[in-house]
Nucleic acid binder design. Structure first.
Lengths: 341, 341
DNA sequence: CATACCGATGTAAACGCTTACATTTTTCTG
DNA sequence: CAGAAAAATGTAAGCGTTTACATCGGTATG
């Protein structure tokens, strides 16, 4: 590959002049500039990003550390992140970091000198503690428990969203409402559970442990949970799954058991993934503006990078919206999608 | 941020020794090594990836240029790519390059010095021509038209898959089968159309232009196409949509028009995205092993990188599989998903 | 006891670029 | 047309690493 030196030699100028042409900085006589560009083109020269960032101390790249890459949630998230990043002239370096604290640390140090900042989603680790450990880099926490101050973070209004769903179910006359919980140790899961309990208390109902089913955010987990609930002596009249994947599993289990939704039992989910409205019956869910979540995180990160040390930490929460469809049997449930974009 | 020099000074050794400790290369006395590691930890030192890759001439990063990031297809693709890349110790730098040739070129040159190779998916540009233009980097083409030799590429057996679907429909007794075409100028779209026509010819049926509806791979496009087909004087008895998103749009349009699927009209899709089996009725589709597609591309790329110039070009095609469900009304259609993982 | 050798460490030259500063060339001014 | 100011270009010092090669004790060898 041709380097700046090759171009300089060929065009009979110093490398400084070549550099100036490619950076728009400094002044170069038009004739010289043209000659340099021609030579560069004929040599197929392109500036070496790595070398450039070594000296400028900026990589124009953002690291994105995610716990997983599976499913629509992450697809949307990455889209939101990329969109915002690219508008600001940044690339994104995606990495899937497994759950453990060790791996996250490892991933963080691998980012050193490759990125200008990191969006970190690590719902299983108390991410705050991570920040003391490896590299010093601007970091924004996404959907992660961040206790202390000192850290930027973006979260979903899980608790509020869960309460909205519960209030909806309660308003339809349900008293025995079960929840299929999210993965244990997961921050979002814990918050949604908290919302569930709060809503019950507010309605004067004492939460029952037998109605709190363990789950893991997977379809299979929802399926299994539903089976348990169906067989329980005092069957619930509604099931709130802590995410849509599990709700889908629940629907399958109910159908196989010959139970009608919503007539025999109502079902609600969380996230409102695109699939939700296509279920049979269409699934009532709590919409999370996923791509906005990513966009917000990047926005915060960019600010942190720009402001360097002088930067007041921000923690924001994106709000959710209850989307009512047939699976909860509300009279005003959403009609089938119109589809004319 | 601490650099190798800081560590060296603090530990009272030369930077070379520090470097050796962090690379496992060369021999360092255990006592010295420990001291260096301690100092490094207390200084929160981590090697600077950029500087390192400047001198070693490898970045341990793979560039991924995609036309879009929307939807399950890309989510799966990235997953496959990341999986394989990380096993080989590579990171991935994701970039969405718009359609135009200019943008792809621009993105390619931005990759210079940041990555060791590129997976390029650019279904609208004759990607082969790109390879002459900007930077010299190992490239693997994904789902892209690559005419000449000289280029590694990974594709889907679009034509074969489309024929499978058509043969299935023909075997069910359909003669008037419409196709909703993919985006114009798109390679996959063209190949699927080719398969459609070949299958008809083989069955002794002359393809009719009026049965080839324009589409764009979007739900809305499928919806619009279906409306046209419904209103045509001589209505088809089956519709083959060139991807699942459009098939979903088709299903919506048919439902709204009061037509039953598959009794009044059969519908088939392509890709077999997760949504397909949840449709009502579940959608017959041609499964594309998406994450394998990504994995294969990375595998080929890694080989190209390893082999440097000595590398025989490979072009592989991943095969598809017809997944029969209720939307085509075959007697042996797939039962509802089992779900016990 | 000189020699060769080996293990441990240091020295310094890259890698491809940017940029402050110095130097040369051009253009203007009186 | 001299001299100064402005414009154009060159020089060289890094950026944070790796690594070939040099150095320097110390130990085994003859």
């Amino acid at each position: 590959m041709a380097t700046i030196k090759d171009v300089a030699r060929e065009a009979q100028v110093s490398i400084a002049t070549v550099s100036r042409v490619f950076n728009g900085a400094g002044i170069v006589r038009e004739e010289t500039a043209r000659r340099i560009r021609d030579v560069a083109a004929s040599l197929r020269y392109a500036p070496h990003g790595g070398a450039r960032s070594l000296i400028t101390r900026r990589t124009s790249t953002l690291g994105v550390l995610l716990p997983d890459l599976y499913g629509e949630f992450f697809s949307e998230l990455i889209r939101g992140i990329d969109e915002t990043a690219r508008h600001a002239g940044y690339h994104i370096l995606v990495s899937r970091s497994w759950e453990g604290r060790r791996e996250v640390e490892e991933a963080m140090r691998a980012m050193r000198g490759r990125v200008d900042g990191v969006v970190l989603m690590s719902p299983h680790v108390n991410a705050d503690s991570l920040l003391n450990v490896p590299v010093t880099l601007p970091v924004v926490l996404l959907c992660s428990p961040a206790t202390g101050p000192g850290t930027d973070s973006v979260n979903v209004q899980n608790c509020r969203g869960a309460r909205d769903m519960m209030e909806h179910l309660l308003s339809l006359g349900h008293h025995r409402i079960a929840i299929v919980k999210g993965a244990s140790g997961n921050y979002d899961a814990a918050e949604r559970l908290r919302g569930y309990r709060l809503a019950l208390r507010d309605a004067g109902i004492t939460p029952e442990r037998s109605l709190e089913c363990r789950g893991d955010f997977s379809e299979a987990g929802g399926y299994a949970a539903a089976l348990t609930l169906i067989e329980s002596k005092h069957r619930p009249t509604a099931i709130f799954a802590a995410n849509d994947s599990m709700a889908i599993g629940v629907l399958s289990a109910l159908r196989e058991a010959g139970l009608r939704v919503p007539e025999d039992i109502a079902v609600g989910g969380f996230d409102d993934i695109p699939l939700a409205r296509y279920m049979d019956p269409p699934l009532t869910s709590v919409r999370v503006p996923i791509s906005e979540l990513g966009a917000r995180a990047v926005g915060t990160l960019l600010e942190a990078i720009a402001r360097k040390t002088h930067h007041t930490r921000q923690r924001s929460r994106v709000s959710t919206e209850l989307v009512i469809r047939r699976s909860t049997g509300a009279p005003y449930a959403e009609r089938p999608p119109p589809l004319r974009h």
